[in-house]
Design a protein around this nucleic acid. Structure first.
Lengths: 335, 335
DNA sequence: AAAAAAAACTAAAACGTTTTCGCAAATAAA
DNA sequence: TTTATTTGCGAAAACGTTTTAGTTTTTTTT
């Protein structure tokens, strides 16, 4: 790897001359500039990014932290963030918390030393305390949240209209004849889950349907356990005639349970869920989804972060960006 | 952000003492060590990664370059690589080429300055020359290929048994009654495509079925165009009674085309493809797949890279690791 | 022709580490 | 007691840049 010193020696000039010539400083003569630039080109010189960091304290790197990677929502969001990073000549580090609090803490701690200029993240479902988030921000690294946001931290947050979407999803089921709708919750720690549930409750209320606590199924990150809980739901005397899953995974588990128990969707029970599954139209039956603009959310999260990195101040003020999700009715909720 | 100098000043010792104490050097007395470590803890000191780089020339960072991110195969591979990186206390940069050669070139050029210690990558379908790959390796950065590998470069490569899988997939169709099988190719530049096609041809040959060039459909990265080509295939007088898609995307396009043209899968035509779609069992009809161990491939690629990073030598010798794919028969190829 | 200004370049410090070398004090060996 | 050895620590160089503050040479102004 060739460096400034190598170029300087080759050209019989000082290191500082080479450095300035490459930045086309007015202090350097035209002839010298030309010689330097040509040799740099020829020898394939590229400034060492880490040496540069020591001077301006800019790593040109951001991190994206997600609870899981093999998830249609997050991968689209990552893709959006990546496209913006590449456009801005930034580098994107990816970290996965596996929905574990300890891992989230550990990852954030490792980022406190200036490795990145900023962080884009979605909380793990296990996160209930926010010290690690505050610590990172205190040490001068701004965070932008998307989707699984943290209300308690003052910064920018990108979400979708979860309450309205939850309301619409539930009303969609009601309008298609459902009177006994179960809500599959993923975690009470997540504000998006709570908002979706609030929308669900509000829709039931509007249509004078009693909200039964037993119809709110508390699922977790453990797929096996979720499967068991959903199976229980469908093995009771009276099965729900509609299911609103807060996330895609839970709807797919519902499909598998119904397959196993020979319960017909949508005849016996209808299913709707938040999902970014591209094959939703090809499922059997095709799945009615509320689809979040995941790619756009990733892009916006990155864009806001970059906007603030340009500024002097590393603290990002409260800012709530709310994008619209889209309800796409398909066969799984057909009357 | 607190640094060694801050700690040294606070404790009235030299910077070198602090540095050594934190590394628990035997040169430092027990009492001093204790004081240093306690204060470092208290002030939240964490060594600046970039300053360290300047000394040992190790960035503790690797890059993963993929042609696309929103793809079930690649995201699982990325997830595998991420898990190994995290375990090894390395950091993972993600880059997407969008299947464009120019972008691939540009990304690699940006990595030539030591930003990463090594690269894991899958080629873009557009890549036909390998200068940029050689340049990177020449500048001391090792590359490990996975799936869409480059035969022409001497290094480690992780693939699956594509020839055998292609053969098995085709034979599976034949055994289920197909006599006129189309192969949907993604790019003649990719060795995996060629191997899958060779397997296809070999199976036809074994069963004395004539291989018609018109049954090899050359698809591209352009989804619209692929859709058109596949539609043409199914609008001819004689439609194929089996389709073997080299990648998932092309099988899904086939599903959409058949939906539109009211062609029944598997009655009128059977479909099999390479795919890591988790909802394959839930499709209508459920999709027969050859599933690659994507997560494992990502893990192995990372593992081999790390094994070589530990060594002095940055050149990785030729090594072909071939994992087995699994053919999972479902309804889309049912007789 | 002398003084001032501009042009072209260099030396050196700085960023935050690690590491080599050196030095003093304390301890051990003679 | 004198000479070695060990222990505990500090000074300074090095990594590859950028930048500030010179320094020399040339050009312009008076």
């Amino acid at each position: 790897m060739v460096n400034l010193k190598d170029l300087a020696k080759e050209l019989n000039v000082s290191v500082s001359t080479v450095s300035k010539a490459l930045k086309s400083s007015h202090e350097i003569g035209a002839e010298t500039k030309k010689r330097v630039i040509e040799l740099a080109q020829k020898m394939g010189y590229s400034p060492n990014p880490y040496a540069g960091f020591l001077r301006h304290h800019k790593s040109k790197t951001i991190a994206l932290i997600a609870p899981e990677l093999t998830n249609n929502y997050f991968i689209q969001a990552i893709s959006g963030a990546e496209s913006v990073a590449q456009e801005k000549d930034y580098h994107l580090l990816i970290y996965c918390t596996n929905d574990e609090f300890a891992k989230e803490e550990s990852i954030l701690k490792h980022l406190q030393n200036g490795r990145v200029d900023g962080v884009i993240m979605s909380l793990s479902t296990a996160t209930q305390s926010y010290q690690h988030l505050n610590d990172l921000i205190q040490s001068g690294i701004p965070i932008v949240f998307f989707d699984r946001i943290c209300h308690e931290i003052e910064t920018a947050k990108i979400t979708t209209d979860d309450f309205t979407s939850g309301f619409n999803a539930t009303e969609h089921l009601i309008q298609n004849g459902c009177k006994d709708i179960a809500y599959l919750s993923i975690s009470e720690n997540l504000s998006i889950d709570n908002k979706r549930k609030q929308g669900y409750l509000e829709a039931l209320n509007k249509h004078n349907i009693e909200a039964l606590p037993s119809r709110i199924i508390k699922c977790t990150g453990d797929e096996k356990n979720n499967y068991k809980k959903i199976k229980q739901l469908f093995q009771s005397d009276k099965i729900p005639d509609g299911v609103f899953a807060s996330i895609e995974k839970l709807a797919l588990s519902t499909y598998y349970v119904c397959n196993e128990l020979k319960i017909n969707i949508p005849k016996d029970t209808k299913v709707i869920c938040f999902s970014n599954l591209r094959t939703a139209p090809l499922l059997n039956p095709s799945l009615t989804t509320i689809t979040q603009p995941a790619y756009e959310m990733g892009k916006q999260a990155a864009a806001i972060l970059f906007k603030n990195l340009d500024k002097k101040r590393s603290l990002i003020g409260n800012e709530n960006i709310i994008l619209k999700s889209e309800l796409i009715a398909r066969d799984s909720t057909k009357q």
